[in-house]
Simulated assay, not measured.
Amino acid sequence: MVAGWVLVIDCTFLIAADKINFGTVVPFLIGLIFLIHAFCWSKIQSILSNHRSLRKLWKILWGAFGVWLLSFILFAYNLHNQISEVDENYEKVEAIIILGGGIQNGIPTPTLASRLDAAVPLIEQQPEAVVITSGGVGVGETRSEGEAMAQYLHALYGIPLDDIYQEKKSTSTEENFLFSQKILADKQVSLDDPIAIVTSDFHIPRSKAIAEHQGYTNLVTLASPTPLATRYNSWFREYFAYISGWILGEY
């Protein structure tokens, strides 16, 4: 019951804050199922005792859930270890690609703002690097993430807009890297040159794998921290992103 309340309350607050995604909806539903079982346990057992086929199906479903839960725990453990080992060797790079992470009403979300904030010291240290803000137009938005990100860097840190190259069409991590290649080529930056990618810590392993699959061979990773309030929901969403990326052959 405790796990059910924790999941439902946590995800209710996040959904109310307009964070509606796999990382909030699925855990909310799991928590709801836990609570239903806790409050209706006697009734459920009574129904199952009179229907052998339902009882068998109930056991199969919970067994499948147990296997899935174990796979998620192993994924989270592995992701935690990879986050701890992200590259922090910020030597000279030819380009800096900042990956989009969502905007609301044309303004970067806290997650995306954290990525941009993390990129600023590197941008200031290496003013000759090609800076790319990558992200298209999201559902319900009228401006691209690439534009909103560039405006954020200009307004808060004074980075000239002419020094920021906006990639405005991508709708996924795969497209972030794919569409950024044209800008890199135009600026005579090779995929073999040292290129920094800036994104959230939990997103580093998958984004790096996707980039390497596309031919980026000399990557430097710069991770922004994920707030504790959304950290594990982000990991949960990333779990499904890994599965879909594998199915789609993104890495």
Rank of each mutant, 00 (worst) to 15 (best):
V25S: 03
S244D: 11
D117Q: 07
E141H: 04
F202I: 02
L70P: 09
L222S: 04
L156S: 09
A155L: 10
G140N: 10
W62P: 03
K169W: 05
R52H: 10
G63F: 05
L69P: 15
S46C: 10
L248P: 01
P205G: 08
H51A: 14
A16P: 07
I20G: 07
D192R: 15
P225F: 03
I164M: 00
I98Y: 00
F236A: 03
L48S: 10
W235N: 09
Y77S: 05
S49T: 13
L70G: 13
R231E: 11
Q188P: 01
L32R: 04
V8Y: 06
A155M: 09
L54M: 09
L156I: 13
L184G: 02
A209H: 04
S172E: 07
S144N: 00
A196M: 09
E94W: 02
I204P: 14
Y152H: 02
G23E: 09
E141W: 08
A129F: 05
F65R: 11
S84V: 12
T12P: 13
T217H: 08
Q181L: 10
S170N: 12
Y90M: 05
A38V: 08
P108C: 01
L122M: 15
A119S: 12
L219C: 07
A155Q: 10
Q188S: 13
G100I: 03
L57T: 15
A229G: 10
A229N: 11
D10L: 13
G102K: 04
Y157C: 07
P27M: 05
I243V: 14
D18C: 09
K43A: 12
I123C: 00
V137Y: 01
R52F: 08
L29H: 06
A16H: 11
I83G: 02
Y239E: 02
G249M: 08
L7M: 11
A38G: 04
A196S: 09
H154R: 12
E94F: 04
P225R: 06
K168A: 01
T221A: 15
S234I: 03
L153D: 01
Q214N: 05
W68E: 11
A150Y: 00
Q214S: 06
E145Q: 04
H203N: 00
S190E: 08
